[in-house]
Design a protein around this nucleic acid. Sequence first.
DNA 1: TAGAAACGCGAGCAATTGTTCGCATTATTG
DNA 2: CAATAATGCGAACAATTGCTCGCGTTTCTA
Lengths: 213, 213
Amino acid sequence: MTSDETRLNPRKAPRQGRSRATCAAILEAAARILETEGGHGLTTNHVAALAGVSVGSLYQYFPGKQAILAELIRRMRQEMLADFEQAALEARGRDLAFAIDALTAASLRHHLRRPALAQALEREEPELQLDDEIHALKARMRELIIDVLRDRNVAEPERTGMDVMALARGMSEAAIQAGQRDFDDLQRRLGRAIRGYLGLAVPSLVGEPRQEG
Amino acid sequence: MTSDETRLNPRKAPRQGRSRATCAAILEAAARILETEGGHGLTTNHVAALAGVSVGSLYQYFPGKQAILAELIRRMRQEMLADFEQAALEARGRDLAFAIDALTAASLRHHLRRPALAQALEREEPELQLDDEIHALKARMRELIIDVLRDRNVAEPERTGMDVMALARGMSEAAIQAGQRDFDDLQRRLGRAIRGYLGLAVPSLVGEPRQEG
DNA sequence: TAGAAACGCGAGCAATTGTTCGCATTATTG
DNA sequence: CAATAATGCGAACAATTGCTCGCGTTTCTA
């Protein structure tokens, strides 16, 4: 049987400048297709055509379209993890509220860079048999969040971290899908949701009922 | 050009009992494939084979696989809306906390019935050019939530409703993906998140910091 | 500068998937 | 029980997509 390695990893590394450009063009074309047509438009011929290279060249570096997708996801996850590590670092020694702001800012920067691409990759991710490396990246991300919470005395950091990540992701996706792009507004709402979940004080959205039925 | 109607609607309605059974078998087979293999396994031949009918029969009732998917989504949304309408009805005259419980319970019942199917359909939905009917179902659902909030004096019910739906969806999806199936536990967590977002009192998860680094 | 290695090409074959059509079978109708 | 309509069938054709391979070109290397 063919292992994940064989199916999902680049076939060979480009050694010269032009081949690096070819690889880059292929990945960029795949990204653009995901943005504009979704996963169904992602065919090897289509990618190659949009990249301005031949299919032959494509197959020289990627064993198939899954490998292209895997590479895009890998990079996305790497970038995301780096952003979060940076945020966690900035928040060292600061309180929970500060850490939440730093992390939500990192998350939003990530989602707002190429909104449609981020959405598409997250949608395709579960369809893929995940690479060990991608698994590891996601695990480190989770650990990072959990540590931030644990260091600040949050109860049940594992489950809390999972819930907080999940609700933030849900809100970000929906907002971006709806075309919202106002960073500060989004961050306020994410912050409210997370603080609220944790039981921190949050200004109420509920007014006094005027009258009853 | 072929309209959405042509592409997404059933081709003709079954009139006899056996053809109704055929249609049902096709839809059920498609559902099972989505559950076990995801959207990529959903091919017309595959569906027909698993349903125990011939492709010819399949095409007699559905113009293509998109139509099958659209029908599954339509039914899912109809069911969901019905559940929510029922919950909103039960909550008539009751306070916000009660309404939240009723609605989250409805949502969870929906997600827990066939977890993998619900996930798969929600993932496939955005790839499809949505039917007007499906759009309408989603709009009614949104209106229902907004009305529940507005009736209880929640500020900015449109945006609040959107955020609350989004965070609940994010949490449900993640939890179910992680294999969690404990209804009461999930409802508690969803309730906490929603109440917290709204600024209602929620027990804190944050302990007093013991000491500083 | 010659030989080797890396790279790029795209026609074309292989494999998969989508769809139709004529005919057999079963139900309905009058 | 005809006549007619509804249903079911699946081989076969069409379209799409995946992928290879031989050959020409560019870059590197010694």
